[in-house]
Write a protein that binds this DNA or RNA. Structure first.
Length: 382
DNA sequence: GCGATCAGCGCG
DNA sequence: TTACGTGCTGATCGC
């Protein structure tokens, strides 16, 4: 860990927090605990009279979807979101990591838990290395603190490209999806072309974004309601897009139906390698429970097979590294990614062999593809 | 003072 | 009502 870097980052975020806090008190007309959703709810929905969009069990919801909707009516919600991002990054990562450094090894040693997640994934705790920020630039900066311990060593990150959609292609044998991966097409552009009935070269970035949401939504069993929320479109339009998807990818539709039927008969869903997840509620009288169980049943074979494949890769990787007496170390797993700390003499070897071992870990009717990055830290390696 | 629960949000 | 799987933090509540 680069603790010097984190110390500077903590100070910088602290300054930004102070500025945001002052503006928030100004806009709210008084001091309150910004981290308290209860106090914030009173300010937004009673003092300022903004419309309460959503409720929680205990009162007004003030989550990100609510504040996004209120942005155009008052400047406060946006400032709250900024403040929340800053506090999240500082308290969960920037200030937490240095405190976990082992004084003997000067490293942070977390746990990878093998018997927590129902799908067969690993989970990570104390700290959770599987949720280090990447989606915002400010958050992503935190990865610069995850660096090789010795000066001339490297961090190498190798991640499976679209592994869950490739698994969906294999399991469903859908000709369109299989063909897309055999051609190594940009999968979201391909889906957009299918759904909107256009040539791939005529797909706009907006259409691609829509297709990306659909591709993920399908694997989670999303309905028109959720898709419409996600894309900010009408329920009817969302339903039409889903319908168009299943007309083009009938193999996926059939596979999903088959998976649910089988789960109802057997009481469990399973992965390509035979890992089972019991799904009790699949025959529940309670509609909500049964619908949630169906979504879990749809997702299990996809998420669980991906977990099986990366575990196989990790075992083979370990065996290989041991056999070759390598000095480099496999240090992290983030569901579809493996991270290594690499000795400079071994860099070229690992750049070649790591993706090869990962790509061969699963035998699917479509190829597996692994992208590799190298740098002095996890930020550069990505 | 302490543990449990809730809301919120970080990741794939 | 709301798309799957996780873990951590701070606020709050009850004992």
């Amino acid at each position: 860990m680069d603790t010097k870097f984190l110390k500077i980052m903590s100070r910088n975020i602290g300054q930004k927090m102070t500025r945001a806090m002052e503006e928030i008190y100004d806009l709210a007309g008084g001091v309150f605990n910004i981290n308290s959703p209860k106090q914030l709810g009173l300010i937004l929905f009673e003092k300022l009279g903004l419309p309460p969009v959503k409720k929680t069990k205990t009162g007004y919801s003030t989550d990100v979807t609510v504040l996004e909707k209120l942005k155009n009516q008052h400047p406060l919600p946006e400032k709250i979101l900024e403040f929340r991002m800053l506090t999240k990054l500082r308290s969960t990562y920037v200030d937490a990591m240095p405190a976990l450094i082992n004084p003997k090894t000067l490293r942070v040693h977390g746990s990878f838990n093998q018997t927590v997640a129902a799908t067969g994934r690993l989970s990570s705790s104390n700290p959770n290395f599987q949720n280090i920020p990447i989606r915002t630039e400010m958050g992503r900066e935190i990865r610069k603190a995850f660096c090789a311990q010795e000066k001339d060593h490297f961090i190498l990150a190798a991640d499976y490209s679209q592994v869950e959609l490739r698994i969906m292609a294999h399991l469903s044998e859908d000709p369109n999806l299989v063909a897309a991966f055999k051609q190594d097409a940009d999968i979201h552009t391909h889906t957009a072309a299918m759904v909107f009935n256009l040539k791939q070269e005529d797909i706009t970035s907006d259409m691609r974004r829509t297709a990306k949401v659909i591709n993920f939504g399908i694997m989670y069993g999303a309905g028109a309601h959720r898709i419409s929320q996600e894309l900010n479109i009408s329920h009817g339009d969302a339903g039409a897009i889903i319908k168009a998807y299943f007309e083009r990818y009938t193999g996926v539709k059939d596979y999903i139906e088959k998976t649910i039927t089988e789960c109802k008969e057997l009481g469990y869903a399973s992965t390509l390698y035979g890992r089972k997840r019991p799904i009790q509620d699949i025959n529940s009288e309670n509609r909500n429970l049964q619908e949630a169980a169906k979504r879990a049943a749809i997702n299990m074979p996809v998420q669980g097979t991906a977990a099986d494949i990366i575990k196989i890769a990790m075992i083979r990787m370990h065996d290989w590294m041991k056999k070759e007496n390598l000095k480099s170390k496999m240090i992290l797993q983030v569901h579809d990614e493996l991270v290594f700390e690499v000795h400079p003499d071994e860099l070229e070897l690992l750049k070649k062999q790591v993706p090869a071992i990962m790509e061969l870990a699963g035998k699917l009717i479509v190829p597996l593809k692994v992208d590799v990055g190298v740098g002095k830290d996890w930020y550069e390696a990505h």
